[in-house]
């Protein structure tokens, strides 16, 4: 965990599960496919900190989503800042 697994341009999907406690993965961005646009440093996972833990810092990314992917409509983009734990890679079939 926390090895800067993703690089800008990588396609990722966010976790779809509803966690028991605090999270910084907004509900509207769950289970959504987006693109990593920039690394945003390394920080302890807020979900764990909210439970009184002291997790090791892990990579955080700016991930951009088309509005239609999040809301089913709209021509804008929404860029959310997400910890690596929230993301799984989308394998390209080229």
């Amino acid at each position: 965990m926390g090895t800067d697994r993703f690089t800008p341009g990588d396609r990722v999907r966010t976790r779809a599960t509803d966690p028991a406690g605090h999270t910084r993965l907004p509900r509207y961005a769950r289970g959504a496919a987006g693109v990593v646009v920039e690394r945003a440093g390394r920080h302890p996972l807020a979900d764990d900190r909210a439970h009184g833990l002291s997790p090791q810092p892990q990579a955080v990314y700016h991930v951009q989503f088309p509005a239609a992917e999040l809301f089913g409509a709209g021509d804008h983009t929404v860029t959310v800042e997400l910890w690596e734990d929230y993301l799984t890679p989308i394998e390209e079939s080229s």
Binding site: R24, L25, P26, A29, A40, G41, H43, A46, V60, H62, Q64, D75, H76, T77, V78, T79, V80, E81, L82, W83
Partner: peptide, 11 residues
């Protein structure tokens, strides 16, 4: 076009 930026983490 419009880009929305959600300050959901540390930036």
């Amino acid at each position: 076009s419009i880009a929305v930026w959600d300050a959901s983490a540390e930036s």
